[in-house]
Amino acid sequence: MAAVDQRRGVDLAIGDLYAAHARGLVRLAWLLLHDEQDAEEVVQDAFVALHRRWGRLDDPAAAAAYLRRSVVNGARSALRRRGVRERYAAALAAERVVVALSPSDTVVAAEQRDQLVGALTRLPQRQREVLVLRYYLDLSEAEIADALGISPGSVKTHAHRGLAALRSGQER
């Protein structure tokens, strides 16, 4: 099993990356999917894909960005394939409340917080992705553009529209 010997070092590197990033990535996936099991699976797939690709990564330091891209793509596929989006849209429709962003610096109460996070799910996919990457991961426009495979200009547009929709309660 000559090829297997080439892998042991990769296992260790993946283990380190997993310890550093897995939890945050599952949380990111959850914000895009609203389903814990699906989120865990998307992240698991991302690490498996990274493992398989390891020898071909130009720069192992780029692994975190690669994982982010994989998770965003994986979440998108999961939404489409598994009908998660429909399930959650239906669940949220029952408690749909227009969420107005009030000019307050106070800590968001849990209920309000969940409504706001829920309102995100009713945004168009790109807007939701941009807002989550920007405000959960605090990524720069360039990093978001890289993660989503779109131009920095589009990032700006999606962010603007997404925030405007949330603010006005007009999200779809």
């Binding site: 993946i14 949380r27 914000l31 917080r113």
Partner: peptide
Amino acid sequence: DEERLRAALRGRADLVDPRDRLDEV
């Protein structure tokens, strides 16, 4: 508004406590 969104996303995400799947990976 952005701060509220940031706080909401972090607050909700923190409730997600995934299990370790490194072995499966």
